[in-house]
């Protein structure tokens, strides 16, 4: 079961990887929206089939998380997406949810909080 994490901050990527791997997920990290799209497009990516969830930050330079979300959902409307943000205003949250995110989590989070979010989404999707 693979999870793709997209964030421009290395420490967040590492944190997510550490947490998710401890629960047995396999994790792919990506530092930008562009890079993430490239990874997803490369159909020969062995993990592509197993991709179960996208964990994405909102605020990133160049293309932000919302852009990535819309792009991804256009191609794979069923892919559950969890959005995280260090600046969780009511506006962003409702925006994100409207655009089709399955869940929203505020940074910073503890491992338990992240896992709860991820597990809930995966369960809901019946995976």
């Amino acid at each position: 079961m693979n999870i793709l994490v997209v964030d421009d901050d290395q420490i967040v990527l590492e944190s997510c990887k550490r947490i998710l791997e401890s629960e047995g997920f396999s994790v792919t990290l990506s530092p930008s929206a562009k890079d993430a799209l490239k990874k997803l497009d490369t159909s020969e990516d062995p993990n592509r089939e197993n991709l179960k969830l996208l964990l994405v930050d909102v605020k990133m330079p160049e293309y932000d998380g919302l852009y990535l979300m819309t792009k991804v959902l256009k191609k794979w409307p069923d892919l559950p997406i969890v959005v995280m943000s260090g600046y969780p205003t009511q506006d962003t949250i409702s925006d994100v949810v409207k655009k089709g995110a399955a869940y929203f989590i505020a940074k910073p989070f503890t491992p338990d909080e992240l896992l709860r979010a991820v597990n809930r989404v995966i369960k809901k999707e019946g995976l």
């Binding site: 964030d7 901050d9 420490i11 967040v12 590492e14 944190s15 997510c16 550490r18 947490i19 401890s22 605020k59 260090g86 600046y87 505020a106 940074k107 910073p108 989070f109 503890t110 491992p111 338990d112």
Partner: peptide, 24 residues
């Protein structure tokens, strides 16, 4: 405040994560 908060939250995620992982 917004700027500061945003900047702080990322490293804070790191601190929280690794502290709790160690605690496990």
């Amino acid at each position: 405040a917004a700027g500061v908060a945003h900047e702080i939250n990322n490293p804070l995620t790191g601190v929280l994560t690794f502290t709790h992982m160690l605690l496990r």
